[in-house]
Design a binder for these strands. Structure first.
Lengths: 186, 186
DNA sequence: GCAGTTATGCAACGAACGATGCATAACAAT
DNA sequence: ATTGTTATGCATCGTTCGTTGCATAACTGC
């Protein structure tokens, strides 16, 4: 029917995501995105509508790297599922912390729909943790309060994302996550 | 000698700090600061030199609220000192998380001297934790690895600052901090 | 009261920001 | 080959950004 799109949308989103991840939403300019993606300003606006729309699309791209482990956690059972999840996440290279955590830090700068997307993810994660911990309390040798410890797990991962900005080492990150699991009692 | 300054520097810094804290460095404009402080643009530049200089001064203002508990921690002894510190920090109202943690999240947007200031603080905190934990291992009933657990303590507090953006409740924050101390073993 | 010094008030700077108008190019359907 | 539709290339929009020049005001020391 019409002229086809020339660029690879997935590659464009991946490159844009890395820029937002590295620089943050506010301090990433359209010029930065143009340089990183090779798109023209006009094409970006045709496809994504606005800077915020573009950012939202890159959040979805980032989510693609999160949903796998999360789904596996949700469909898993007990402490084992949690260990697997935490080990997977803590082994990821933190290009610049975690894009979702960075977005929370910038929450008063980015538009609401983006913040809500991020918050929903963390709520879903906490809920999954709680569910697995409740199972572990009933059928395994976990004794603490699932609701509180689920919060601790989320908060712990968020803390790691921040800490990685001070002391970046995947090995250390993994070690800290392992120790956290031990402390939490799973 | 010359015309005296008309504004109250401490009040100006306090108001500016709150704006940076709420909105972040990048998305705080000079216009925002003018509105919040009542200063004219010209006076701000006379005193602080630049937006970054102004921000650095507000970081110092924020630090005034941190140095008290930190100094008390450093001069204290063993697990008790750590408990006191964590309880004090977790009882603070997180206007919008923690300004220092927010600054780390924006670390690729703010100038180096500001980031270094923040990083030095967390390094100093971690070092203080380690020192107290080493004492606790020798003279009290603490058994874990001080170096690793000191990192956990810093990371835990940073995690709390992020988590407070999702679920803001000082009571819950205090509860989580208490539980963290329990988990860490002090 | 005059000289020296610094803060303030006002206006405006150039640059960068996000976003858009419009002519043209590239395709599919007929 | 013509028509309809949408992407691209290019120029540029109006705003907001951080920052500054300059005349004047407010003070101290002599």
């Amino acid at each position: 029917m019409a002229r086809p799109i020339e660029f690879n949308k997935e590659a464009v989103l991946m490159n844009a995501m890395k820029v937002f991840w590295l620089k943050g939403y506010e301090s990433t300019s359209m010029a930065d995105l143009i340089e990183a993606t090779g798109l023209t300003s006009r094409s970006m606006y045709n496809v994504f509508g606005s800077k915020n729309g573009f950012f939202k699309a890159t959040l979805d791209k980032y989510y693609e790297g999160l949903i796998g482990p999360l789904a596996k956690l949700e469909h898993g059972e007990g402490a084992k599922a949690i260990r697997t999840y935490v080990e997977t996440i803590s082994a990821m290279e933190p290009l610049n912390g975690c894009l979702y955590v960075n977005t929370l830090s910038e929450k008063n700068s980015v538009e609401d729909d983006c913040v809500r997307k991020v918050m929903r993810h963390f709520e879903r994660l906490e809920s999954a943790f709680r569910s697995k911990l409740e199972y572990a309390k009933e059928h395994e040798n976990f004794t603490a309060e699932p609701k509180l410890r689920a919060k601790q797990l989320v908060s712990m991962l968020q803390g790691l994302a921040v800490y990685s900005k001070i002391n970046f080492s995947v090995e250390e990150q993994k070690e800290m996550a392992q120790d956290s699991l031990r402390m939490i009692g799973i």
